[in-house]
Amino acid sequence: MTSSVHVGLIGVGLMGHGIAQSLLRQGHRLSYLDHPGNQPCDDLQTAGATPLETPRDVASAAELVILCVTGTPQVESVLFDPQGVLEGLKPEQIVVDCSTAIPSSTQAIEARVREAGGRFVDAAMTRTPKEAAEGRLNLIVGADKALFDELTPLFSAFAEHITHGGPVGAGHTLKLLHNFVSLGFTAVLAEASAASQRAGIDNSVLLEVLGNGGGGGVVLERLRPYLVDADPSGFRFSLSNSLKDVGYYHSMSKDLGASRQMGQAVHQLYADIVAEGNGERLLPELISLLADASTQRGD
């Protein structure tokens, strides 16, 4: 896949829109599912993208289909529901799942796609919508090595770092491990920041101390704009999606029989915050929610 590919994209949200921009910028053709959950797509259509009405239409029109939806239920829906991708799937056509999903379900989904004559790859993403629009995502791919090598040139259109994690399911496994670490760090830093504020310490001083010590790193830098200017856009990820991801990690670790004491604590924190009606708020706002006396826990 070194020349222009006709890609069918299902899921033009914050991440999917950036992937679409990057694919078009690199000369690939694009059809996408017209859906109320999409970001505004006028710019994509101006660049030559074509909206289509059903997942079946997307699969029928494209050479390869990329899914960039919320999670396992949405992946199953767009693939297997009436007028889904499988109804339009062509022999040997590749379906690339860039969503966050439960690995055991991913393996079952791959089997159904293979039985229908297609090929399935999980290519989980990390980084943010900003990097997606810049073509600088990280991809963690679950596929056999030959298929990984076949897809790498296409992935390079929207990803900077592309890691072969292993067979199908490995991409989603590694993504859940990554997100648990990232969201766990966020929870720890948010709770520490909330305690710091209640102690009357200036946020700039806390940032200096953490940044010069063991608290420094990517997560702190994503929270920095909120601590400095109350700007949550440095980490454009909702608390409801955070809960989904740590919930998926909790399910996976249970399936594996792995230790999950920290996972349970992190999951409970996000579950409590979302249950209070904060699901649509962005991740950095967790700091203020925890600093509010009305949301204190663990007494």
Rank of each mutant, 00 (worst) to 15 (best):
L79F: 11
A187Y: 02
V219T: 15
Q39V: 13
T186E: 00
G165D: 05
Q26E: 15
R127T: 07
Y249I: 11
L79N: 09
L147D: 00
Q45P: 05
H17C: 06
H161Y: 14
S240Y: 02
G11K: 08
A116D: 04
E131I: 12
A124R: 06
V113Q: 07
E280P: 12
Q261L: 15
A62Q: 09
T295D: 01
G234L: 02
T72A: 01
R127N: 09
K175H: 04
D144L: 12
T163R: 14
L147P: 03
L89K: 13
A293Q: 12
E115S: 14
Q39D: 09
S288L: 05
F155I: 07
V205H: 06
P284G: 02
S242V: 14
S288W: 00
L24S: 00
G279L: 02
V65Q: 05
L151S: 01
V121E: 03
E160A: 15
E160K: 15
L154N: 06
Q83M: 11
A190D: 00
G16F: 04
A159W: 02
L220F: 06
D292E: 03
A293L: 13
T128M: 14
T72N: 04
D34P: 10
K145C: 05
I10D: 02
L33W: 05
G71D: 05
D122Y: 07
M252K: 05
N138E: 11
R260E: 10
